[in-house]
Design a protein around this nucleic acid. Structure first.
Lengths: 352, 352
DNA sequence: CTGAAAGCGCTTACAG
DNA sequence: CTGAAAGCGCTTACAG
């Protein structure tokens, strides 16, 4: 339990192996070829002393910590969990460690994060900006290597994205093709605060485009907000529609969590899915395919998404002067039972 | 874009404010009271120079980085997402940053993690050990401050846990009380590899105790493995039971994800829940209450769990010589529709 | 309340 | 291929 002896340093290793500290460093960093005999001696000494390099010292010296920061809006969602998992995997395979941050709960966090990067605790940042307007990206002065993920309309940093607006247009178009005429967009507002968010904006635009294309009116009462982008938030949003007797025959939710909440609220109200109302999501998290009815949603490869972000950041750290790059991850519609068939609408039209 | 000027150091600030570097340090750390006038001058200089302290240097000097490591088995599960969220919140409120790691994919990772802690990149570790047997904890020689979370049968480190075996016994007892007689335990093996895991062991024991207590036989064919502790894994486990024509009237799953997979597989096979088979989970993740039918599960306060772990670690970092402490988080059964009523059993008994 | 010196443990030029 | 010196940016004793 007690520290049996003070921790060994390179100097100790050097003394035991009868070489200079520089040689120990050479063995460790493999920067220079060390003669096999010397190397063996040094490695034996390291083993004997339980030597572990001090990264703070290394970081101080060469300005790199081997740590990158990842900031997502809300870590508690299944989508964030999936992305985190893949990002950490991608970092590991490059010998990098990941510091996780959450930004949604507090707008100040995005700024804090960048400051932290500048304290040299992280070599770069992968950021999912919550707000477009006052995002740190706007203050692009002395930013660390930075990759943005998600919907961001700017071209001054590296970024990875899915064609969110197009996907939203496609999935809205899909429910219209199925016969829906009163399509609710779920998640349009109130999620994070009164301000606009990039994700919300893009997906709302796609929804509006699809309606317009089909010659359908864009009605304010069909643009439903959710108190949070969670299952409970989605359920609350749909419950409010029902309470207000809004007529609708489809719900296009902006995330799978919102969609699952919608399914729940509809079921609780005795509304048939897809018989009366179609429901769709976004992201294709694992349980989208396993709920009842299985959820139609926008699918894309989460691993490819994370891998692309990490790769961009890694090369950016190596070479800061590269021109900004953008990687688009392809999406497809995963059409499942929640949108199969022509919806009758709700409230039931039989009385008319 | 280009670095307009080299980054300012404390020396620069000191020069501009016409004080010594030590005074700048004093202003920053608040260790010593600095006269208001001097403080104001120093702070003005910091602002002017955009000064940000270099934590690598600070870390090198005082052996603390303000970073803690968190290692969970599988970050992609909703349960991990919930815990991560709360842990990072708890760390933030203490001014700590969190480095996330995932251990399940590779047994070596637990060891790597501890090594990393020793490189001084983290001041302490919160670890959910996957394997009891060959866990790093067994090599308790020069461990950093460490808090274990989850089922661990040892008393040499701080830990936070729920009474997992008792909870498993209670929820198994609950389905037996409802009338179940052929209770499947889902998740008993094969999850991570052939070896035993602490979580699995505890929950299996509780299950066995409940059967024994009720005078029911403990049948090997009712102890179902899942290829992974995911929704898909749970579905596959139950599908195999069905294919093998095993008779059962309840599924006690060891996580909610497994339980959701069970619900899916049963529905796909036309089996009524809870009419023919009862289903229960563990952890009470958000969507447990929102699936159809809502899932009976073991509930506990995830935030309290995370907060307790962070608090233990924080005080441990401050004082390494404290005796090991254990914090138990209370659980309750959240009884929902998936276990309401007396199950008829599957395959249907009507033919007999 | 403030200053001058030393050192945390590495690595980067610079010599040999 | 290896060594001696200097320094990364802080903070900890030690003086005043």
């Amino acid at each position: 339990m007690a520290q049996s002896r003070p921790r060994a340093t390179m100097k100790d290793v050097a003394r035991l192996a009868d070489v200079s500290p520089k040689t120990v460093s050479n063995v460790l960093t493999r920067a220079v070829t060390v003669s096999p005999a010397t190397r063996a001696r040094v490695e034996a000494a390291m083993g004997e002393l339980d030597f572990v390099p001090n990264y703070s010292a290394r970081g101080l010296r060469n300005g790199r910590t081997g740590m990158i920061g990842v900031a997502l809006a809300d870590l508690a969602t299944p989508f964030s969990a999936s992305i985190s998992h893949h990002l950490i995997d991608a970092a590991h395979s490059r010998g990098l460690a990941v510091q996780m941050e959450e930004t949604a709960s507090d707008p100040q966090r995005e700024h804090d994060l960048v400051t932290r990067a500048q304290t040299h605790l992280v070599d770069g940042l992968i950021l999912n900006p919550v707000r477009l307007k006052d995002s740190v990206v706007e203050h692009l002065q002395h930013l660390p290597p930075l990759v943005l993920i998600g919907e961001v309309e700017q071209h001054r940093t590296d970024r990875v994205y899915v064609a969110s607006r197009r996907a939203s247009r496609e999935i809205t178009g899909h429910v219209i093709d199925q016969g829906a005429r009163k399509v609710v967009a779920l998640g349009t507002s109130g999620a994070l605060d009164a301000g606009a968010t990039a994700t919300k904006d893009e997906r709302t635009q796609g929804y509006v485009e699809a309606l317009t294309e089909a010659g359908l009116p864009v009605l304010p009462e069909l643009q439903a907000s959710a108190p949070a982008w969670t299952i409970a938030g989605g359920a609350a949003g749909v419950r409010r529609l029902i309470d207000q007797s809004v007529e609708f025959d489809a719900v296009v939710a902006f995330t799978d969590s919102l969609a699952l909440g919608a399914l729940h609220a509809l079921h609780a109200a005795g509304v048939q899915v897809p018989g009366q109302v179609l429901v769709t999501g976004f992201d294709d998290v694992e349980h989208a395919a396993f709920v009842e009815p299985p959820l139609t949603t926008v699918h894309f490869d989460h691993q490819a998404y994370a891998e692309a972000a990490m790769e961009l950041l890694h090369t950016r750290i190596e070479n800061r002067s590269l021109a900004p790059r953008a990687v688009k991850i392809e999406h497809t519609l995963a059409v499942r039972r929640s949108s199969s068939g022509r919806p009758e609408g709700f409230p039931s039209q039989r009385g008319e």
